[in-house]
Computed example of a mutant assay.
Amino acid sequence: MDRGSYFEYNGRPAVRFQRTYPHPAERLWAAVTDPAELAHWFPSTVRMDSHEGGKIEFSGDPNLEASTGTLLAYDPPRRLAYTWGGDELHFEIEPVDDRSCTLTLINVLEAENTAARNAAGWTVCLAELGKHVSGATAEGPHGESAEPWRPLYEEYVAAGMPAGAPIPGVSGDGS
């Protein structure tokens, strides 16, 4: 598994993922901002006002209620950040050359014990993103062909990532 890492971001717990894609930055920018593209890999349906301070709406995730956040940064095609509940998501896209770029996703967490749960979820989502931008069929993280979440979660917990937050759809504390 291309593992995410746990760290502190401005004094808050966070998980970080980095992936390099054989596509220009503009291609990845579209994948992380265009609602039609997000539908192939992101866990919720998204609508956003494309400017810093704009509203972003999340709906359609079978595990979460619909909610609204705020765009903290909108700098095409390099930087996007927004609030989602008590969390923040930061997407940084850095060109490697004219034909490839590196995406860094940082999920700043509201609570430390959500690290393993969220890391497993983003691992599934980023695998779907990889399929989508490569032209393969990507049904999204809730689709039948998505990588199973539970084994990834167990790997993150076994590696020592903070855990114990409730898992939607599962009784108990998630540990």
Rank of each mutant, 00 (worst) to 15 (best):
P148T: 04
T33D: 12
M161I: 14
G121D: 02
P62W: 10
T45K: 10
P148M: 05
A73R: 15
D61R: 05
V32L: 09
V133C: 01
L71R: 03
R19S: 00
N107Y: 02
E8M: 13
G135P: 00
V108S: 03
W41T: 03
P151Q: 14
E94S: 15
P95V: 00
E52A: 14
L28V: 13
P62F: 05
E92P: 00
L109G: 04
A30L: 14
D87R: 07
G11T: 09
M161H: 09
A39Y: 05
P141T: 03
P35R: 07
I106D: 15
A25K: 02
T20Y: 06
G53N: 03
A158R: 14
T45S: 12
G11V: 12
A14H: 00
V96W: 07
R79G: 05
H40S: 09
N118R: 08
S50R: 14
S100T: 11
R99H: 15
N107V: 09
R12Q: 10
G121R: 04
H142L: 00
L129I: 01
E52G: 03
G130L: 11
C101E: 07
E37P: 05
A25H: 04
G85I: 06
E26M: 00
W84E: 06
E139T: 13
N10R: 15
D2C: 09
Y82F: 15
G85H: 05
A81I: 01
L105I: 09
V96G: 02
A136L: 09
Y21G: 07
G174W: 07
A136I: 00
E8V: 03
Y153S: 06
C101I: 01
L72S: 06
E112H: 13
D34W: 06
D75G: 02
A136D: 03
